[in-house]
Design a protein around this nucleic acid. Structure first.
Length: 880
DNA sequence: TCTCACACGC
DNA sequence: GACGTACGTGTGAGAT
C-alpha cells in the first residue's frame, strides 16, 4: 500500500450511522429533529476526507428488509432489535448530506452494504489501487488484502483502528479469508448465524489455525480431541457450512456501477453549509470556516418598507411591532439609533432624530391602549426612559415568549427567531454591526433595511408564538407573569440602588492596607516574592518549594482552591494567611473596585440589569454588576452591605425573604406527610429532617445530625449528586449515597416525587413548574450515564427551584401593583432569588412590612404556608 | 480576546 | 464500575 495513484474509500453507511447514533447523546436541532447520527456521520466524513484524501469514494447502504441470504436461512438476522425510530428518521438527512458533499451513495435490493463494498473492493484490488473500508462491523475484516485495509471504529466515532493483513493475523492468528471460516464455526449472534453450538471464538480460531478451513475441519473430525467437541461438529456439519456461507460477503453483487463511477472531486462549502445550518451544526460550520460572511450571499426575500421623515397617524396602527435599536450591550443611557415598526398598513423605518421630535409618535408610544409587539421590551423601555420617553402598551415580547417555549434555546436576537421559524431572513446583528472593537453603525440604508426586517418579522411572528404558548398552556405564565414582570424589572433597573461611594472607598483603603501586610508576610514565609493571585505560582510555592502534600490537581496543575487549602491548615503558617488574602482580595477586586466602576457619577447609583431569559430554571440573573452575589456569609464581606443605602437620607432599606421556599414547594408538590408536618407545625426543617432520618426525638438531634440533614436538604434543593453531597460534608461518596437513600426512605412522598419527575421527563421530554414553566431534558434517555444522571437530577430539581422562581416573580408583579394601589412611595429595588429589597420612607415602613408579608405569603396558595421574614434599617447590612 | 481557576450568592 | 457531577457572574492570570 502507499504509493498507488488511486485511493478508494468505501464506507459502510448503516454501520457508521448506527455507531454514531449510539456513541452520541440524542441531540436535536432547533426544529426538534434528532441529529446525533447525522452529526457523528459528518464528523467521520470530514475526518476521512482530511486524512485520506480519496480520489474515489462511495457510501453503501443496506436496502430493504430481506437479502439473498434469507433464502439460505430464513432466520438470518432474526431477533434483531428494530432500528430505533430516532435513528431511522435521520437516514434521509445522511443521504442529503452525502449528496451535498457530492459523495456517491449506493444501495441494492436484496444485498447488504457489505456486498456492495466487497464487490467494489474486489474490482479495485489489483495493484494500482489503495482501498480503505470504514465500518464498525468486524465481519468486513474478511475483505482485507494487501491492497485493502479495513478500518474499524473503536469507541466514539472518530477513534478508529486500521487492519492490514498483518494486523488481522496478529489479532486473530488467522488470515482475513479465514474470518468466514471462523464465523462458520462460532456463528454470530448479532446476525443470528448459528455456527456450531459450544464453539466460541477460542475454539474456532484454534481449529482454523490447525486445519485451515471449515471444510478441512469437518473432514478431520476424527482426529480432533475432545469427545463433546467431536460430537457437536459432526452433528452440525451442515449448519457450519451454511454459517460460513452466510458470513461470506459476495464479491459479485449485481451492481450497476463500476469503480470508475465513484470518482470523488471534493465538495463545495456553498452546498454543505446550508444543510449544516439547517441541522444546527454550528461547530462544524465554524470548523469549516463557515461563518456568515463566508456563506454565499443567498438571495434574500424582498421586503418593501418606507423610510419616513414625517410620522403620519395612519402609520401607527394598533397593534404594531416596534423596534427601538440600541447597539451598546448596557442599555442604561444607551443611544438609540433608529426606530422601525410594522403593522397591517406596512413597514416603516424612522431615524431616531425624527421619531424623538414627533409628538404623534411620542403620544402613540406612551398610549397604553396602543398595543406594541416587541423583542426585549425591557431594553427598549429602559433606553427610552433614559431619553425621557415613556413606553406603554406592550402586548407581546418575542424574546420572553421564546424563553418560555424553550429556555435552552437562548435566542438573543430577532434573527435567531426568524431563523427558527423560517420567516423572512433577518441578518444577525453581528453581521450588520460587526463585533468587539469594530462594532459600528452601517450606512443608513443598510440600517433602515435591517430594522425594517426586524419589525416586519416581529409583527408576523407574534401570532405564531402566541399560539404555541396557548398550546403549551403557557398563556397565563406569559401574559400574567413574565410580560408584566419585565416592566417591573425595567422600573427596578431604572430606579437603581444608591451606594455610599465614600464607604466603599474607605473599605477599599482598609483592605488595601491589610492586603499589603498579608502579602509581605506570605512572601516572607515563602522565602520568595510571587503573585499570590496566580494559582500556578501559588501551587509551585506550596507543593514544590514548601513540599506540602498536593491533594488535588486540575487540568493545568495543582489545585489551590479553598477546600484544598483548608486541608493544609495547620501544616504551615502560610496557609491561613493565603486564605485570608484570597478572601480579602476577592472583596477588593470584585466588590469594592468592581462596584465603584459601575456607580453612576452624578447620582451615586448602581443600575444592574436583570436577565429574564437566561437561567434554565426560571430564576432571574443579574449583571453589570451582579447584585445577587453580594457577600453575606462572612462578616468581612457582609460589611459591603453597609454601602447599599436608600436613595433618600430619610428613607430606609427593607428586605423580605422567603423562609425555606424551596423545601416548602417540595412539601407541596410531593405531598410528603413528614415534610408537610414540618412546615405546618412551623418546625425547624433541618431538625425535623434529622429527626426523621436518624429516628430520634427533637431533643436528641445533635448539631452534627442537623448539619448532615441540612446538607441533604441543600442537595435536594439544588439537585446535587452523591458526589456533591460527599464534598460538602467531607464524607465518602458511598456514605453520601447511603445517606441520601436513608433520607428518601424517611420521606417516602419525596421519593415518590423524584421517581415521578423522572418518569414525566421521559414521557413528555420536559418537566414543568406550578405555573407551567417548562424545561426540556432531551438527555433523560441518553445512553451516556453522565448526561442521563444529570438530566435526572435536573428533572427532580427544576420543578422545585422553578416553582420557587414562579412564586417570587408572582409576588413581584403583585407587589408592584399593590404599591401603586396603596399609594406608597416605597420602591422595589432588587430581587435575590428568594428575597425582595425595597427602599421606603420611614413612616411607610410599618405598612410596607405588612403589605410585603401579605403579598409574598399569598402570592400562590400551597398546601403548606409560605413564610416571609422582614427586616429593615439604614442600609442593606442592617436589613437582615 | 479567549480560557482557566477561583470565589461570591442562592 | 467508570464516567464528572446545582446555577449564575465576575475577577486576575496566562496563553494566543
Amino acid at each position: 500500500m502507499g504509493n498507488k495513484t488511486k485511493k478508494l474509500v468505501l464506507i459502510d453507511g448503516n454501520s457508521i450511522a448506527y455507531r454514531a447514533f449510539f456513541a452520541l447523546p440524542l441531540l436535536n436541532n432547533d426544529k426538534g429533529i434528532y441529529t446525533n447520527a447525522v452529526y457523528g456521520f459528518t464528523q467521520m466524513l470530514l475526518k476521512i476526507l482530511e486524512d485520506e484524501k480519496p480520489t474515489h469514494m462511495l457510501v453503501a447502504f443496506d436496502a430493504g428488509k430481506t437479502t439473498f441470504r434469507h433464502k439460505t436461512f430464513v432466520e438470518y438476522k432474526g431477533g434483531r432489535q428494530k432500528t430505533p425510530p430516532e435513528l431511522s428518521e435521520q437516514f434521509p438527512f445522511i443521504r442529503q448530506l452525502l449528496d451535498a458533499f457530492k459523495i456517491k451513495r449506493y444501495e441494492l435490493e436484496n444485498y447488504e452494504a457489505d456486498d456492495i463494498i466487497g464487490t467494489l473492493a474486489s474490482q479495485a484490488a489489483e495493484g494500482e489501487w489503495d482501498v480503505k473500508v470504514f465500518t464498525g462491523d468486524k465481519d468486513l475484516l474478511q475483505l482485507v488484502t494487501p491492497d485493502v485495509e479495513v478500518v474499524l471504529t473503536r469507541k466514539g466515532i472518530t477513534e478508529v483502528e486500521a487492519y492490514t493483513v498483518e494486523q488481522v493475523n496478529e489479532r486473530y492468528g488467522i488470515t482475513p479469508e479465514q474470518i468466514i471460516d471462523m464465523k462458520g464455526l462460532m456463528g454470530d449472534p448479532s446476525d443470528n448465524i448459528p455456527g456450531v453450538p459450544g464453539v466460541g471464538e477460542k475454539t474456532a480460531i484454534k481449529l482454523i489455525k490447525q486445519y485451515g478451513s471449515v471444510e478441512n475441519v469437518l473432514e478431520a473430525i476424527g482426529e480432533i480431541s475432545g469427545a463433546k467437541l467431536k460430537e457437536r461438529l459432526s452433528e452440525n456439519k451442515e449448519q457450519a457450512l451454511m454459517s460460513k456461507d452466510l458470513a461470506t460477503i459476495t464479491k459479485e453483487a449485481p451492481i450497476d456501477l463500476g469503480i470508475d463511477d465513484t470518482t470523488y472531486e471534493g465538495f463545495e462549502t456553498a452546498s454543505v453549509f446550508p444543510l449544516f445550518k439547517e441541522l444546527g451544526f454550528q461547530s462544524l460550520l465554524d470548523r469549516l470556516g463557515g461563518d456568515e460572511a463566508a456563506l454565499p450571499d443567498t438571495e434574500k426575500e424582498e421586503l418593501s418598507f418606507q423610510r419616513v421623515s414625517i410620522i403620519e397617524p395612519n402609520m401607527l396602527k394598533n397593534p404594531s411591532s416596534l423596534v427601538i435599536e440600541t447597539l451598546t450591550e448596557d442599555y442604561h443611557k444607551a443611544d438609540i439609533h433608529g426606530v422601525a415598526l410594522s403593522n397591517e398598513s406596512g413597514t416603516y423605518y424612522v431615524p431616531y432624530d425624527i421619531a424623538k421630535e414627533s409628538e404623534t409618535f411620542k403620544n402613540w408610544l406612551q398610549d397604553k391602549d396602543q398595543k406594541k409587539i416587541m423583542f426585549d421590551a425591557k431594553r427598549a423601555h429602559v433606553a427610552l426612559k433614559g431619553q425621557g420617553l415613556d413606553l406603554n402598551g406592550i402586548e407581546f415580547d418575542l424574546q420572553l415568549a421564546s424563553y418560555l417555549l424553550n429556555p435552552s434555546e437562548s435566542l438573543d436576537e430577532i434573527a435567531d427567531i426568524a431563523k427558527q421559524y423560517g420567516t423572512l431572513t433577518v441578518d444577525s446583528n453581528e453581521k450588520v454591526y460587526g463585533k468587539g472593537a469594530k462594532k459600528k453603525l452601517p450606512e443608513d440604508d443598510v440600517l433602515a433595511e435591517h430594522l425594517s426586517r426586524k419589525a416586519y418579522t416581529t409583527f408576523t411572528l407574534k401570532d405564531v408564538m402566541a399560539e404555541k404558548l396557548q398550546e403549551n398552556e403557557q398563556s397565563n405564565l406569559f401574559y400574567d407573569l413574565e410580560l408584566p414582570l419585565s416592566l417591573v424589572l425595567a422600573k427596578m433597573e431604572e430606579t437603581g440602588v444608591k451606594v455610599k461611594v465614600d464607604t466603599l472607598k474607605k473599605m477599599g483603603t482598609d483592605l488595601e492596607g491589610q492586603l499589603t501586610t498579608l502579602e509581605k508576610e506570605i512572601h516572607e514565609l515563602a522565602g520568595v516574592t510571587f503573585n499570590i493571585n496566580s494559582p500556578k505560582q501559588l501551587g509551585e510555592i506550596l507543593f514544590e518549594k514548601l513540599s506540602l502534600p498536593a491533594v488535588k490537581k486540575t487540568k493545568t496543575g495543582y489545585s489551590t482552591s479553598v477546600d484544598v487549602l483548608e486541608k493544609l491548615e495547620g501544616k504551615h503558617e502560610i496557609i491561613n494567611k493565603i486564605l485570608i488574602y484570597r478572601q480579602l482580595g476577592k472583596l477588593r477586586s470584585t466588590y469594592i473596585e468592581g462596584l465603584l466602576k459601575v456607580v453612576h457619577e452624578d447620582t451615586d447609583k448602581i443600575h444592574t440589569r436583570f436577565n429574564q431569559v437566561l437561567a434554565q430554571t426560571g430564576r432571574l440573573s443579574s449583571i453589570d454588576p451582579n447584585l445577587q452575589n453580594i457577600p453575606i456569609r462572612l462578616e468581612a464581606g457582609r460589611k459591603i452591605r453597609h454601602a447599599f443605602v436608600a436613595s433618600n437620607p430619610e428613607w430606609k432599606i427593607l428586605a423580605a425573604d422567603y423562609s425555606q421556599i424551596e423545601l416548602r414547594v417540595l412539601a407541596h408538590i410531593s405531598q410528603d406527610d413528614n415534610l408537610m408536618e414540618a412546615f405546618q407545625k412551623e418546625m425547624d426543617v433541618h431538625t425535623k429532617t434529622a429527626m426523621d432520618v436518624f429516628h430520634v426525638d427533637e431533643q436528641e438531634v445533635t448539631s452534627e445530625m442537623r448539619r448532615h440533614a441540612k446538607a441533604v436538604n441543600f442537595g435536594i434543593v439544588y439537585g446535587i449528586s452523591d458526589y456533591g453531597l460527599s464534598q460538602s460534608l467531607g464524607i465518602t461518596r458511598k456514605e453520601a449515597g447511603e445517606f441520601i437513600k436513608t433520607y428518601l426512605e424517611s420521606f417516602p412522598g419525596v421519593q415518590q416525587y423524584m421517581k415521578d419527575s423522572i418518569t414525566e421527563a421521559k414521557q413528555n421530554g420536559y418537566v414543568s413548574t406550578l405555573l407551567h414553566r417548562r424545561r426540556y431534558l432531551p438527555e433523560i434517555n441518553s445512553r451516556n450515564f453522565n448526561l442521563r444522571s444529570f438530566a435526572e437530577r435536573t428533572a427532580m430539581n427544576t420543578p422545585i427551584q422553578g416553582t420557587a422562581a414562579d412564586i417570587i416573580k408572582k409576588a413581584m408583579v403583585d407587589m408592584d401593583q399593590r404599591l401603586i394601589e396603596e399609594k406608597l412611595e416605597a420602591k422595589m429595588l432588587l430581587t435575590v432569588h428568594d428575597e425582595l429589597i425595597f427602599e421606603a420612607p420611614e413612616q411607610e415602613i410599618a405598612k410596607l412590612k405588612k403589605l410585603v408579608c401579605e403579598v409574598m405569603e399569598q402570592a400562590v396558595q400551597l398546601d403548606v404556608p409560605l413564610k416571609v421574614d422582614v427586616s429593615w434599617g439604614d442600609s442593606w447590612f442592617e436589613a437582615k
